[in-house]
Simulated assay, not measured.
Amino acid sequence: MNWGELERIDSTGMKEAILLQGESVKVSIKESHKAILEVAGSVRFKNVLMTGAGDKYLIPMISEYLWEYFSDIPIKTVHSRTLTDSPPKWIGKNTLAILLSQSGTTKDTLDAMDLCLSRGSTCVAITNRWERPEDRSLLDLEEEGGYVIRTRTKPYPEKSLPSTGTFHATLALLNLLLLEILAFSQRNSEIDYALKLQTEAIPDLIDKLSKSSRVIEWGKLAAKWGLNYVDKMFYVMGDGARYPVARKHALIMLMEGVKSDACDSRMEEFVHSLVETLEEENKEKKPLIILKPPSQTKSLETFQLVKRVWEKQAGKEKILEVAPQEIDKEILIPQGNIENLLSPPLYAIPLEWQAFYLALLRGIDPGVSRLVGKIRSADTLTKI
């Protein structure tokens, strides 16, 4: 297989963005940590709202687990379109609203920002945009009493539609923001340890895994495996804080990048729904991509059940395990409760490589969308 020849299809530099996403996280933390500390020391609130669209809706779903481990202050993630169309009554002057958008101009998220501002909420934006555009953007918060925290990706701006560097940098800054807010009110050794992990260990692990020859080779082999089923449909399964990563792989990497049908599934729901697709009436069993939890987690037992049943009913060839701690054993991933909450982005990396190479095997440019761009509106959709 001449991978070098296939990589010429990549017109948006998606490979470079994946290779450099660890550096993107490190630079983002270095350049924005001061702004995060200023926000953390200034905001006052009684509940937290996090909102975005695409993978910027999935990112706060991961961070929720981290916040809820440390705090009893209510927190909720709502899709920015849903938030605007069906605004919860509780959003108001006691709400800290955190808005996420790579471009800073995503229409759904701008509408959500306007709603939160109209309710008197304290608004904080995390975006990869540094230059102020002519039209309205999240950067307008700097002039409207809110705050803006910027990621810094390499390359900048990130061009590929299924963002990789921006995903990791945004998640890192969101986790860091939440931890620093917690540190101002209830500093303790666990929060200090989590801060150290988020600012030092996790960025290093993202960098090493993204550039690991073993992880890249795994991605190529996983892509060849996926090519057998790419015209069917994939199930992608994860548990707890790993579930949003599974959903990202299904909805963003496979649907947007590979142009393949895919469906996310919660591991906790397996015995309540997905297991029934393995009955004999379903003649064509679908392939399953499953994120393996770390060894110390309670959900490992559920993983083993899913694996055993799927291999028996669908066949061993129709299951792909994703375990970054096993793909490159020379890269040591720390274990523990807090590590488990901060490790989900590590699972995204081998999956990014799988999607990248699977798209290339199909002759598809993995970073390009021919139909719908990141800024969606009724007007633009009617022009398709």
Rank of each mutant, 00 (worst) to 15 (best):
M1R: 00
E5M: 13
L6F: 03
I9M: 13
E16F: 08
L19H: 04
Q21D: 10
E23R: 10
S24V: 04
S24Y: 04
S28V: 04
H33A: 11
V48F: 06
G52M: 10
M61E: 08
S63W: 03
S63Q: 07
E64S: 10
L66Q: 10
E68S: 15
D72H: 08
K76T: 10
R81V: 13
T82H: 15
T84H: 11
P88S: 08
I91R: 01
N94F: 05
N94A: 05
T95G: 07
L99T: 04
S103V: 01
T106G: 07
K107N: 08
D108M: 12
L115P: 03
C116W: 01
L117I: 13
S118I: 11
R119D: 01
V124R: 04
E131I: 14
P155M: 01
K159A: 13
S163Q: 15
T164M: 06
T166F: 15
L178C: 06
S185K: 15
I191Y: 12
L195F: 03
Q198W: 00
A201N: 05
I202V: 06
P203I: 06
P203T: 05
D204I: 02
D207V: 00
D207Q: 12
S213N: 14
L221M: 11
L221K: 15
N228I: 01
M237F: 01
D239I: 06
D239W: 10
G240K: 04
A241F: 00
G257S: 09
A262Y: 02
V275I: 15
L291N: 13
K292R: 15
K298L: 14
E301P: 03
F303Y: 15
Q304P: 02
K312S: 14
Q325H: 15
I327V: 12
K329D: 06
I331M: 04
L332F: 03
Q335F: 08
G336K: 10
N340V: 07
P345I: 05
Y347L: 10
A355F: 08
A359N: 03
G363F: 00
V368Q: 13
S369N: 11
I375K: 12
T380V: 15
T382C: 14
